[in-house]
Nucleic acid binder design. Structure first.
Length: 229
DNA sequence: TTCCAGGCAATAC
DNA sequence: GTATTGCATGGA
């Protein structure tokens, strides 16, 4: 049986701390990534978010559905530069939002999703949302809900995305593509630590971008090493 | 030109 | 309950 944490250790050794979730107006940022906003925070792990940063993470999580992050950055900057990156502004400026988020695709759908979520966000009055409440919002599925909980609210849920599925299947860690099965697999084999979950998921994405975007996937050296353990 | 990107809801079987 | 389809821009 493979020790899941050993995969995390190897990924961290290879790629370093990822500074997720990117924030476009983070003060004192030390940008290390490419992309238009270079908003990766400089901490090793979770940083405390203020309300606008928390909201921005939620909006980014919706905009990045099946969409390249660089395109999401463009939409976020458009919203930010037009002073629309807040729940009330998004609700009150539906048509303008639709135009501004065009770079990140599916703009007809996502503009509605953003407004739906904004109403939900205001209804929270600063409270941390429950997962089942988030999932009732049209446009928020499991991955988006878990990304919001983990990165905006520091709630320890493990985010499963397409990359994660490719990784675990390719390594033969578990024979399933079911979201909840995979989430339970990670959560039950790791310390229940949101900082670990945040960094691990970010590292999986970074690694998968490099190794699981084009078939055949092949196998990298450090993962060969893990498979021998 | 074709393929892919940090999914989701609606519909079909 | 599981499989398929529409949604859309921009970069490789």
């Amino acid at each position: 049986m493979i020790n899941i944490l050993s995969i995390y250790d190897e990924l961290l050794k290879k790629y370093g701390y990822q500074g997720w979730w990117p924030i476009i107006n983070y003060k004192g940022v030390n940008p290390t990534k490419t992309g238009s906003i270079k908003g990766y925070h400089p901490k090793k792990y979770a940083f405390l978010k203020n309300d606008s940063q928390r909201f921005q993470i939620c909006i980014g999580a919706i905009l990045t559905q099946n969409t390249n992050w660089v395109n999401v950055e463009k939409s976020l900057l458009n919203l930010y530069n037009n002073n629309l990156l807040s729940p009330k502004k998004i609700i009150d400026n539906a048509e303008k939002v639709k135009e501004l988020i065009k770079p990140s695709g599916y703009f007809n759908l996502k503009s509605k999703y953003l407004a739906n979520f904004s109403r939900f966000y205001l209804s929270l009055n600063g409270k941390i949302p429950f997962r089942d409440e988030l999932l009732k919002v049209k446009g928020i599925g499991k991955e988006t809900a878990d990304s919001i909980l983990l990165y905006a609210y520091n709630v320890p849920v493990f985010v499963i995305d397409a990359y994660t599925k490719r990784l675990v299947n390719h390594l033969g860690l578990i024979d399933s593509n079911d979201y909840e099965t995979l989430r339970t697999f990670f959560e039950s084999n790791l310390t229940n630590d949101y900082k670990l979950f945040q960094e691990f998921h970010a590292l999986i994405v970074e690694h998968a971008k490099n190794n699981y975007s084009k078939k055949p996937y092949g196998i990298s050296d450090f993962l060969k090493k893990i498979k021998k353990n």
